[in-house]
Design a protein around this nucleic acid. Structure first.
Lengths: 138, 138
DNA sequence: GTAGCTGCAAACTCTTTGCAACTCT
DNA sequence: AGAGTTGCAAAGAGTTTGCAGCTAC
């Protein structure tokens, strides 16, 4: 039983075939799949799975904090397993998503919130850039 | 002629009655209005204005960088005139949006992007918190 | 005069939901 | 057995768009 399955079971979720497949897809993903991506990959394993189930499951996993939901200004959501805390840099030319982590930044955002009189509950930081030396004009 | 109207004219936009009203609404806003908000406020001035025009105008202004479009994890967009650069802290209890600015943060994000080999084109930073001392439990 | 703009309504995209059937525990 | 879960199709929310008429330049 995978760690993800275990944590779902602990949360009282029934481990149905569909959920196992979705968890497997998420656990295996090296990228930040959209709902459609997860659906397509799950269908490749069991073609009878429905997109409603994918939506429902991803929402559940998000509530359990097993998964992070991102909205990268694309008009839809992407998901990733919440293994560790990090941020994202989106390559504006390729759509590639690069993960990074920065302690200084973590400290700074806490401090900013505190200075404003707030406990920081959540945050969102995304960088959007172009590869240096990418000479493509226009 | 307001500064906003002037910049629209320079961009070659026709200054129609509807656009003047929308620009006025945006210029007067002390908050971060949603499309519906802009629509409601514009209707109060000219009740014949349509929401399609509001959407089209806001998209145009966004492309011209006269306006900033935000998506604060609410499922819809909010807008504000792009007068100065700042970030937002969203009060999770009241929905209030607090603006802040931090030079250290600006420098840090440039550095992070550079270290990853990227020119920073755009970014998004939002903090979500609860007022310290707000004792509301649950 | 005409390119651009508008209101209307229909269409679109992403996401959620009601329901009857099914399945994990 | 029964609460929770599923697939389906329909509905919902927010946003965009085709079109015929209108308007700023």
């Amino acid at each position: 039983m995978s760690e993800l399955e275990q944590r779902c079971a602990e949360a009282g979720l029934k481990m149905t075939g569909q959920r196992k497949i979705i968890l497997q897809v998420l656990g295996d993903a090296q990228d930040h799949p959209s709902v459609e991506d997860v659906y397509d990959r799950a269908k490749a394993i069991d073609s009878s799975i429905s997109i409603a189930t994918v939506y429902r499951t991803l929402n559940l996993l998000d509530e359990l904090d097993l998964v992070m939901k991102h909205e990268f200004q694309e008009g839809y959501s992407r998901y990733e397993v919440n293994w560790d805390h990090h941020h994202h840099l989106v390559d504006l030319e390729t759509g590639e998503v690069i993960e990074f982590q920065n302690d200084e930044l973590e400290a700074l955002k806490e401090k900013i919130a505190l200075d404003l009189g707030y406990d920081l509950i959540d945050h969102r930081l995304e960088l959007y850039g172009k590869k240096i030396g990418s000479k493509k004009k226009k």
